[in-house]
């Protein structure tokens, strides 16, 4: 093959690649740009300046939104996401550690059960959960949502962390035990620090997912006054005559914590997801 042909191929490959990248950039960039733009528009401007990048921006929507009740639902979201993350981690870290070391039939059954729990639609689990929390008198409380989220995410967390514990050499753990460390010591002093990337990845993802979760929230919490952000969004977008600048400004506020977290953890997430998702 001549160099000219090679060069030609390289060039055409570059063009194809660049146009594909442009298309992806458009379809993923445009929605974000429009969320932000619309949140700064007057309601009357929303549709008259729909396709235009130029309009007179206003902060009035944000000013109207930023009330004490919004602050309350923001706090509820933080409480739900943080408590669900803590409970899930407390339960799944030791389980992920143990399942990484087992090697027998029980393991197969355990893993399969976890995968089954992980895959059952949330729209299915909310039906009995509603009944159970109703019977326990826990409806309309944050703990019901926190516990439901923890149960939803525990199988996912265990499965995501297991490969990190598996990648720790068995010899290391055994050496510590020969040196007289108890099982708990070798877990907490050797394995836990070595699996910290996996734990951090898992914690981030659980926090992000429970931050955005809304199906459990809108059904287990009965009074919209105690809704988290995600449930407020779900309620607003479902109504008639949507106030778009308001909805988009809410979307921006609900996305900010995710954005901040994402900036600090993307590298970790990238490694963690590729290790945990497919294994």
């Amino acid at each position: 093959m001549t160099n000219a042909v090679k060069k030609g191929r390289k060039k055409s490959r570059g063009i194809v690649r660049r146009s594909a990248k442009t298309i992806f950039a458009f379809f993923y960039g445009m929605p974000i740009v429009w969320i932000i733009l619309t949140s700064f528009k007057q309601e009357t401007d929303v549709f008259s300046t729909q396709s235009s990048l130029f309009f007179s921006p206003t902060l009035s929507t944000y000013r109207k939104l930023l009330t004490s009740s919004l602050f309350e639902s923001f706090t509820n979201s933080i409480i739900i996401a943080t408590c669900a993350t803590v409970i899930t981690l407390l339960v799944s870290i030791p389980a992920g550690y143990a399942l990484a070391r087992f090697s027998n039939k029980t393991l197969g059954i355990g893993l399969t059960a976890l995968i089954i729990f992980q895959m059952i639609p949330q729209t299915a689990t909310i039906i009995p959960l509603f009944q159970i929390f109703n019977k326990l008198g826990m409806l309309d409380t944050l703990p019901s949502v926190i516990l439901a989220d923890a149960a939803l995410l525990t199988p996912f967390a265990i499965l995501l962390m297991r490969p990190f514990f598996r990648s720790i050499p068995v010899a290391l753990v055994e050496a510590s035990q020969i040196d007289g460390a108890s099982s708990w010591q070798s877990f907490s002093k050797i394995s836990l620090p070595l699996a910290r990337n996996g734990i951090a990845t898992t914690a981030t993802l659980i926090w992000i997912i429970s931050w955005g979760e809304f199906l459990y929230a809108v059904n287990l919490i009965l009074s919209p006054n105690s809704y988290p952000m995600s449930a407020i969004l779900a309620q607003q977008v479902g109504g008639f005559g949507i106030f778009w600048p308001g909805l988009m400004a809410l979307s921006v506020l609900a996305s900010l914590p995710v954005a901040i977290l994402f900036i600090f953890t993307y590298r970790l997430l990238r490694e963690g997801l590729t290790l945990g998702a497919v294994k």
Binding site: I35, I208, F214, S230, L233, V237, M248, S251, A254, S255
Partner: peptide, 10 residues
Amino acid sequence: ALPPIVNGSV
């Protein structure tokens, strides 16, 4: 990673 409700709304 954004809340699905945000992506759905937009």
